[in-house]
Amino acid sequence: MSKIITPLSEYKIKSAKPKQKDYKLFDGGGLFLLVKTNGTKLWRYKYTENGKENLKSLGKYPEVSLANARLNKESFKTNRSNITLRDVVTEFLATKEKSCRKNYFNQMVRRINFNIPEYLLSKPIADIEKTEIAQLIKQINKRSAYSANVILTYFNNFYELAEASGYIKMVPSLSPKFLITKPEAGHRAFLSDEYELSAFLKTIKHHKNQIAYLMFKFLIYTVLREAEARLLRWDEIDFKQRLLILPPSRMKNKKEHKQPLSDKAIEILQYLKELNGSYKYVFYSHNNKSHFNKNILFYVIKKSGYQGKQTTHGFRHIFSTWANNTFPELGQVIEKALAHKNPNKSEDAYNKAEHLLQREKLLSKWADYIDGIENI
């Protein structure tokens, strides 16, 4: 016959004195009060999952009363299966914020936001398949083996916390052995680590050719291709409508491209208007008496020590990754901003939506993000 447990009362809890060893006062249903030798009283909930006993901390008495401890137990029982990855990440960051330096903590938050997509953060952690994480790590590895290793370490930390809190049955084995390999450097290399990107932006900011630097920033803000930015003409800018209107002859997909301008992009153009407004090209080279040479930005990258690590086209990759992770519901808007050709010819023939307002808001947030990175 099982032992009948008499529920606790506030009087019994208040009367409990410390002893030579820790001891427990049971309330029933797995809830008990742990009385420590120093007099501290802690609420614990013992539950079984797949034959394994687990403990959940429910707070400290008297901050958490008997009634609230019982409510917390029931709430935990109800919500445990609905805990999302975001909930675990939030709990993880709360513990790290107290123990980490501010810069390191902010870097951690940025890396998580940049690399882990919204759909995964919103999913119950118990429902996330190991293959989903493996696929994400492999995707990040294509950009940066270092970042892939960091994010994989974070995931292992998330799962250890989730298991300790009783949100999952067991920690999946996530080894870097088969997931992370150092990618070969390509002509579209780009920096995926935000601190490296920040260092790059700070380096080119002090380049002796300030027009080249402004061209870089404008190219980043507008996510144009290198030639589209470098050969930009004043007659392709509509300041009133806050638009770039690039003719088909200048576009890779041979279609006119209208690109909204953020406040930061407008600011660069207004500054250059005072310097080069009487010339044909926005980024006018007084040495060439025309537009800049096509190798100017490559030269800036090389002199800054980032050859093979960052390319002009690489900023489009960075934008695409950031935008798709931050706003996964804006897929068509993002593709329009990048002036990508729609692979679905039938849809491309009928769907003429420009999404100009959404693109302007997206590019404004992107410009704020880039400036935030530069000022880390």
Results as ranks from 00 to 15, higher is better:
residue 2 S to K: 14
residue 2 S to G: 13
residue 4 I to L: 12
residue 4 I to K: 14
residue 5 I to C: 03
residue 13 I to S: 03
residue 15 S to L: 02
residue 19 K to N: 02
residue 21 K to M: 03
residue 23 Y to H: 02
residue 23 Y to W: 04
residue 25 L to M: 10
residue 30 G to M: 07
residue 31 L to M: 12
residue 34 L to V: 05
residue 39 G to S: 08
residue 43 W to F: 12
residue 46 K to F: 01
residue 46 K to D: 01
residue 47 Y to E: 00
residue 47 Y to Q: 01
residue 49 E to D: 10
residue 50 N to R: 13
residue 52 K to Q: 11
residue 55 L to G: 01
residue 57 S to M: 06
residue 60 K to I: 04
residue 62 P to M: 07
residue 68 N to E: 15
residue 68 N to P: 01
residue 68 N to D: 15
residue 73 K to M: 13
residue 82 N to W: 03
residue 88 V to N: 11
residue 94 A to N: 13
residue 98 K to Q: 14
residue 105 F to M: 05
residue 108 M to P: 01
residue 108 M to Q: 08
residue 109 V to E: 09
residue 111 R to G: 13
residue 111 R to P: 01
residue 112 I to L: 12
residue 115 N to Q: 12
residue 117 P to F: 06
residue 119 Y to I: 08
residue 120 L to E: 02
residue 128 I to D: 09
residue 129 E to S: 13
residue 129 E to Y: 10
residue 132 E to K: 09
residue 136 L to D: 02
residue 138 K to C: 03
residue 141 N to P: 00
residue 142 K to I: 04
residue 142 K to L: 10
residue 146 Y to V: 12
residue 146 Y to A: 14
residue 147 S to R: 05
residue 147 S to Y: 04
residue 148 A to N: 02
residue 149 N to S: 14
residue 151 I to T: 08
residue 153 T to V: 02
residue 153 T to D: 14
residue 153 T to N: 13
residue 155 F to Q: 06
residue 156 N to W: 13
residue 156 N to F: 13
residue 157 N to H: 15
residue 157 N to C: 13
residue 161 L to D: 14
residue 166 G to R: 06
residue 166 G to A: 02
residue 167 Y to G: 01
residue 168 I to F: 10
residue 170 M to C: 05
residue 170 M to G: 06
residue 171 V to F: 10
residue 173 S to Q: 07
residue 182 K to R: 15
residue 185 A to K: 15
residue 185 A to V: 15
residue 185 A to C: 10
residue 187 H to P: 09
residue 193 D to H: 04
residue 204 I to S: 04
residue 204 I to W: 05
residue 205 K to F: 07
residue 211 I to R: 06
residue 213 Y to T: 11
residue 214 L to V: 00
residue 214 L to W: 05
residue 215 M to A: 12
residue 219 L to M: 15
residue 219 L to Y: 00
residue 221 Y to L: 11
residue 225 R to F: 12
residue 227 A to M: 15
residue 232 L to S: 06
residue 239 F to G: 08
residue 240 K to I: 14
residue 243 L to F: 15
residue 246 L to F: 03
residue 252 K to V: 04
residue 253 N to I: 00
residue 253 N to L: 08
residue 259 Q to D: 10
residue 263 D to C: 07
residue 269 L to Y: 09
residue 269 L to R: 03
residue 272 L to N: 06
residue 276 N to A: 01
residue 281 Y to G: 01
residue 281 Y to V: 00
residue 282 V to Y: 07
residue 283 F to E: 10
residue 291 H to F: 08
residue 300 V to M: 12
residue 300 V to C: 09
residue 305 G to Y: 07
residue 305 G to V: 07
residue 309 K to F: 05
residue 310 Q to V: 14
residue 311 T to E: 00
residue 313 H to F: 11
residue 314 G to N: 00
residue 315 F to A: 04
residue 320 S to L: 11
residue 321 T to F: 10
residue 324 N to F: 05
residue 325 N to R: 04
residue 325 N to V: 12
residue 325 N to T: 15
residue 326 T to C: 00
residue 329 E to D: 13
residue 330 L to Q: 07
residue 335 E to T: 12
residue 341 K to E: 15
residue 342 N to L: 10
residue 346 S to M: 14
residue 348 D to W: 03
residue 351 N to C: 05
residue 354 E to H: 11
residue 355 H to R: 12
residue 356 L to N: 09
residue 356 L to I: 15
residue 357 L to T: 14
residue 358 Q to V: 01
residue 360 E to A: 15
residue 363 L to N: 09
residue 364 S to I: 07
residue 366 W to G: 05
residue 367 A to K: 06
residue 367 A to R: 04
residue 369 Y to C: 04
residue 371 D to P: 05
residue 375 N to Y: 07
